[in-house]
Design a protein around this nucleic acid. Structure first.
Lengths: 137, 137
DNA sequence: TATAAAACCTGCAGTAACTACAGGTTCAAG
DNA sequence: CTTGAACCTGTAGTTACTGCAGGTTTTATA
């Protein structure tokens, strides 16, 4: 007979994943994580499966997937049909968003760096950074 | 005698700045923009000064400054003391944030691009992207 | 001048993805 | 058996808007 799998409290799961307790409860509330077993007193108890699922969520979030996409990914992962094409659609969509944001941020970085550099040498009467923000183009 | 400066409705200001009417009202509510003059009936009327100030806010936002920093920048711009050093502090702080975000997004882009590429060639039984999210490291 | 449509008004609810209480219960150790 | 840490639920706050309902004002046309 197999030894029953060890159960974790929410605090233990939190420590093992690096995900805050409140966030775990939040993910449960919005349906990303299934409701776990409870102790007689009502405390949550998790098995290793829950840890795997939460890790999945955290990795996807780490890649910037919005929660809605994470939900979609999880559904596809759960589903029997191997829908690699659908997974790719979600991921590619997100990749495009990431690339757009990347382009925006690159511009910001360049402009800001220039402004700060100009500010540093400042012997002007007025702050060149403020002026730049005030003057049209 | 000078011709009285032309006044704009909130709609006109919106069209001239590209900022939504609701957002203008929101900026007023949170104290970024001063309360403008009103018509007898209560409609807002703006002068050219309001347009300059809103443009400033929009440029700063376009560079990713959070509203709180925009507020700080505006205060410094309004103040008599030329506090270029304080402006630089705010801007440099933000520049560091931008660079951090940039680094994060670069990583995301790389990893996502690899995953999607692997997915595309997929003749595997299971989706490699899903597997990557499931498997530790 | 009358009317109708467009623009405006206030106040509040909703968005994403958490985070942080408050006020109460349960668990584990000594 | 007591204490303190960890847990519970429910609600409100965060950022920066956006959108709506329900009502008023302005403006253009007839």
């Amino acid at each position: 007979m197999a030894v029953p799998p060890p159960l974790m409290t929410i605090g233990a799961l939190s420590r093992r994943t690096g995900c805050k307790v409140e966030t775990i409860r939040y993910y449960e509330r919005i349906g990303l994580l299934p409701a776990p077993a409870r102790s007689r007193g009502g405390h949550r108890h998790y098995g290793e499966g829950a840890l795997k699922r939460l890790d999945f969520v955290l990795r996807a979030r780490g890649l910037g997937f919005p929660l809605d996409s994470v939900r979609g990914l999880l559904d596809l992962a759960d589903g029997e049909g191997r829908s690699c094409a659908q997974v790719e659609r979600i991921a590619f969509r997100h990749l495009k968003d990431v690339r757009n944001k990347l382009a925006d941020i690159l511009v910001m970085e360049k402009v800001l760096a220039e402004m700060v550099a100009e500010c540093r040498g400042g012997t002007m009467p007025a702050c060149p950074l403020i002026e730049a923000l005030f003057n049209e183009d």
